[in-house]
Structure formats: structure tokens, C-alpha cells
Design a binder for these strands. Structure first.
Lengths: 335, 335
DNA sequence: CTGAAAGCGCTTACAG
DNA sequence: CTGAAAGCGCTTACAG
């Protein structure tokens, strides 16, 4: 049998309630008693039974992280796991645990979000944007369950969310290039419909306009985000009447294709043409030469989500809808 | 107030214990009662309070996944997260939840493993090999706490572990090359002291020997696992009197360097020289041409760890120490 | 086949 | 400042 609060009480010569109060930091206990109880708790190696505490306190100090955990997700979407680590780090600082719930098989197992909520095994839920859908949003809203969504939902809602400002990242990218003296800036984007890509482009455009530079319409190229498409897009840019002096690559794969095209065409970087990419991962470290980057610290974003969660728990009526983590510019050898 | 087992009992006109038994699948209840209780439970949208169940059953149906969750871990070590997803998938099939515990900050927060165990918030622990140390091993052993280590510990112990057989992976690599007609096989390894690298090399060697081919001593080159070092190693191989007809690259970065060296030296792949690499991630998808690979399905390994955990829970005396997940060969364009 | 009752190990009004 | 007692919502011997 493991040792209980009764054992401590008996040994310290006080009541069970007094031990409980000491352990929970009540201020109404005399210094002498506090000291004695703490010492005997320590000497008996007493650890409160978490299951009993949760039950009595009607709280679990546990937060669910809801996301897709399918096979190979770790390679396709490492950013999500970096966010997860940030969330965990913030929550564990506040003595909360985090348990994983997978949305990719959720349906099969029949564990709906409302069921998870009513079980009471968690006090709140942090939802990775890619895992969110309108049904989950509704169930969460109806239950008034504390939550933070990471990523501004693309449907109307009254959810709490935080996100990073991709338009701002685009502005940073353009500002960096302007500052380094480039003015004829091209943009090779992912699919035209991709929301993040759109936002980044918007930021680039507005910054150029503010500086009285307009983007040549030919210098904006959409791709399917493959290296091959980016390679061809770059070759097209090289062959134009007005060639750009800098290329903004919307993601790492595009940068990889562009770098290779430049190599094959013996274009000197950054003297002939400069380039820059968003995001440090997954591939920027193996792009040669090492590129200048506009990066988002998603671990930090996860931490912020965790801290917001704690605040929500303390003040459930708090409405959180904000852009938090700032992009940063990393100077590489390509600008 | 959420609805409790008493409400269901009252509504169904039975006792609380009967409801409990129905919900827990006892076979001593009449079909009629089972039916009535289940129907009223459903109609009341009753969900048992997990905190109360855990408390009464003295179990949490929760498993801890112990690993390093530091910043950027997701990019440096995506395999660990793929394992995590596999673990989660297996455990959730058996209605167990998984909560994360970070070893990279554990010391700071003073949450030792024995403390975690005695809190009773988890029934077992799955430990990623990289997070294991002798202290944790000892605390786990002393407490007789159900556990599975993923990765054969490199110190003597009586722990339960599962691992993948890297020697076998080496054998598969060599066998594949022999079968494709290559006999002069080179091996570019990571650091000489790296355990996995050693095991793979051992497998390669033994398979070659069995086929009466000996490896040219010059054809074995250790590197620091960088692209640059691999590039140079490849160039050295090209310049040798006896050039190899195939190169086994111990990891993706090495394969990246080798592929590039071949490109620069206009070596035709696989006609002049073939190559093969271990692991599909993180970079094999962007190596050109797409390489033949000996891969380990680590998600599957995670699943197996999860299933082992369930078996341990049912039979705590079970000793698990085995190599489980088999390597697979993926035919690419480089052999 | 069913139910009354004790108990899981804490917390928290409440009384003193 | 301290303690007796009720209660958190279930499970499980035990009796019938």
C-alpha cells in the first residue's frame, strides 16, 4: 500500500484536513504546523494521489492537444510537432499535463469531442488549426469548453484562436530585399488558392507599393509547390526581357528548385539574382548557398497558446483572438 | 450539473450498482435490464465521469510517453514523433490515453520519474530510447512500473524494450545490391562510434562475406555525417584504383552529398555507380534521382510498443526484450 | 439476477 | 488556527 494523507496526518499529529491545507498552501495555518507537516510528508516520501485529488477538486490539470497524428505526419508536418512541444513546455510550467487526441481516426473510434468533454478527463483543449472543422467548433462552443485554436479558422466563429501574421511576414521579406537594394522583385508562390501564400504575397505587394515599386505582373508565378515547377518558373524568369534582381520563394521546396535552376544557369547568387525563402524547415538547412529566410518561431507560438490556455482557465470569459508570434528575418548568403 | 450514474439509475428504476455493472459489461445482469439501462443512459446522454471512474478503479487508463520535447526536436528528430503517433494509435485502440512527459526540462521542474509514478496519474510508461538514462532505469525498476523502452538500452538492465534490428537492415542493403549484380560495394558511414552505423555495417559485411565477396578496406569511409564530408568521401572513391560499383550511404545527408558528387563528376547512376541509403526521411524525397532505400517503419514500431504495453498491463511479469519491426527495401532509380 | 453499503483518498464548507 | 464530517461519482465485495 502506498502512503496516504492519513499516514502523514497521524505521523504529524494533526488532522487530515490540516495536512491537506498545508499541501495546498492555505495561509490560515501556523508556521509551526506547516513546518511539521511538510517535514513529515517529506520524510514519508508522501505524494498525493493524483486520481483522488482530481476527483475531489473536480479538475484534472490536464489539457488535450487535438490534432492529426496519422502515420508519417511527423515528416509531412514537423511544424505541428514543434508547436506541440511549445504547448507542452508552457503547460508543464503551470503543472498541467497534456494528452494527445488524434483527429485522423477519431471518427472510427466514435469519440466525439463532446464525449471527450463530458468525460471530464481534461480541463481544456488546444486545437491545431488543421484538425479543426465546423462540427468540432460547434461542439466546443455549445459546451463552453475552454479552448485555444492555433491558426485563425477559415470559417466564421466565436472561437478563441491565435495565429501568426503571414501578411506581416510578407512585408518583412519585401522590406529586407528593398533594404539590401533589390527593387525588381519576383514572387514564386504555391498554389494560388493557398491562404498562407496569399497572405504573404499581399504583404510583399503592399510593402513594395509603399516604397513606390510596383511588381511586374510577369514576376508573379504560381506553382504546385514542387521543385520541378519552381525550377521551370525560375528559368522563365531568367529568360524574361526584364529579369528580376531578387526572387521570393514561398516555401522551401520552391527555394530548392530555384537554387538548382540558378546553379545550372551559372547565375551568381546574390550578385546576379538574390533569393529568399519563408520558413527554416524542413529543407532550408540543405539549400546551397544557405538562404536568407523569413521564419516563424512556431514553438513560441505553441508556448503562447499554452499560456493563453492557462489564462482562459482562470478567466473563462476571456476572448482570445490575436496574431501573436512575430516573424523574424535570418540573413543568409543569398541576399 | 452534469448527469450522473444516480440519474440513470433513478430513471431506469434500478440501483446504482446495477447501472455500473451494465456499463462495465458484467454478465450477471438480465438481458431486459441491460437493455433498459443502456437505453436510458443513451437517452440521458450519460457519460461516466472519468475522474470518478479512475479513482474508484484505481487506474487511469493513461500511459506516459517519456521523451525529449525540446524546441526544434520536431525537425531534428521527426522519427521520434512518428513513433509517438504509432504508440498513440495502438493505445487509443485499447481505450488508453497518452500524455507527454518531457525529459529535456524534467530536472528543472523537479518531477522525477519516481514522483510521476507515485502520483498514480498513469498506469504505464513508454520511453523513447534517447530519453533513457540509468537513473530513470533504476527508478522504473525499483517501482516495478510497467514500461516499454523503444530502443535497446546501451547499458545492462532488466528493462523491457523493443528495437529494430539494424544489422538486419545492413544485410538487406547488401543483399539487394548483390542481387542487382553489384559486388564492389563501398560504405560511407557516420561517425565510427555511432552504434546504429556500426550495426548496419556489420550486416553489410556479413552478407558480403557469405556471398564470398570481401569489402575493399579502402571502400569503408567514416564521416561526420555532413553532406560536405560525404561529397569528399565520394570523390575519393571515384579516384581510387579499384572504384566501387555501388555505394551504401549510412544516412540521408550522406546520400545527398554522394548524389551531388556524382552529378558534378558526370557519373551515370546507376550504370557507372549505384547507390543506396538507409531511411526514407528526412531527405530521401528530395534526392535526385530518387534513391533505393532500406527503410524502417518506425510508426509500426511505435504501434508494437503500444500493444506490448497493453500486454504488460494485463500480465505485469511479462518480460519483453525483442527486435520487432523488419526493415523493408524500397526500389528506387539508383540501383 | 439485484441492491445496500463501504470504500477509493482527497478537499472544503462549517463549527469551534 | 484546527478538526470533524460530508462529499466528489463511481466500483465492488457481500448479502439476499
Amino acid at each position: 500500500m502506498s502512503i496516504t494523507i492519513r499516514d502523514v496526518a497521524k505521523e504529524a499529529g494533526v488532522s487530515v484536513s490540516t495536512v491537506s491545507k498545508v499541501l495546498n498552501g492555505w495561509t490560515t495555518i501556523s508556521a509551526a504546523t506547516i513546518d511539521r507537516v511538510q517535514k513529515t510528508a517529506k520524510s514519508l516520501h508522501y505524494t498525493p494521489n493524483a486520481r483522488a485529488v482530481n476527483f475531489a477538486k473536480k479538475a484534472s490539470d490536464n489539457i488535450i492537444f487535438l490534432t492529426s497524428l496519422s502515420k508519417e505526419e511527423a515528416y509531412k508536418n514537423p511544424h505541428m510537432f514543434d508547436i506541440m512541444c511549445g504547448v507542452h513546455s508552457a503547460l508543464s510550467k503551470f503543472s498541467h499535463s497534456v494528452t494527445l487526441v488524434d483527429t485522423s481516426t477519431e471518427g472510427i473510434l466514435g469519440e466525439t469531442v463532446s464525449r471527450i468533454i463530458s468525460k471530464g478527463s481534461a480541463d481544456g483543449m488546444i486545437i491545431h488549426g488543421s484538425a479543426l472543422n465546423e462540427q468540432i467548433a460547434e461542439e466546443i462552443s455549445i459546451a463552453h469548453f475552454p479552448h485555444i485554436v492555433i491558426g485563425n479558422p477559415d470559417f466564421s466563429n466565436q472561437l478563441c484562436w491565435i495565429d501568426t501574421n503571414h501578411t506581416l511576414a510578407g512585408e518583412f521579406a519585401a522590406a529586407h530585399l528593398l533594404q539590401r537594394g533589390y527593387t525588381k522583385i519576383a514572387f514564386i508562390g504555391g498554389r494560388k488558392t493557398d491562404f498562407i501564400s496569399q497572405q504573404r504575397l499581399k504583404g510583399v505587394r503592399s510593402t513594395l507599393l509603399k516604397a513606390r515599386h510596383r511588381m511586374n505582373a510577369e514576376h508573379l508565378i504560381y506553382t504546385d509547390s514542387s521543385r520541378e515547377a519552381a525550377y521551370k518558373a525560375a528559368e522563365n524568369l531568367f529568360a524574361m526581357e526584364e529579369t528580376p534582381d531578387a526572387i521570393i520563394c514561398e516555401n522551401n521546396l520552391i527555394a530548392l528548385g530555384v537554387a538548382r535552376a540558378m546553379e545550372h544557369h551559372a547565375i551568381r547568387i546574390p550578385d546576379d539574382i538574390a533569393f529568399l525563402t519563408f520558413d527554416r524547415y524542413p529543407y532550408a538547412s540543405i539549400i546551397d548557398p544557405s538562404p536568407s529566410i523569413v521564419d516563424i518561431d512556431v514553438y513560441d507560438m505553441g508556448m503562447q497558446a499554452g499560456e493563453m490556455m492557462i489564462r482562459k482557465l482562470e478567466n473563462p470569459s476571456l476572448l482570445v483572438q490575436s496574431y501573436t508570434t512575430l516573424p523574424i528575418v535570418i540573413q543568409g548568403k543569398t541576399t
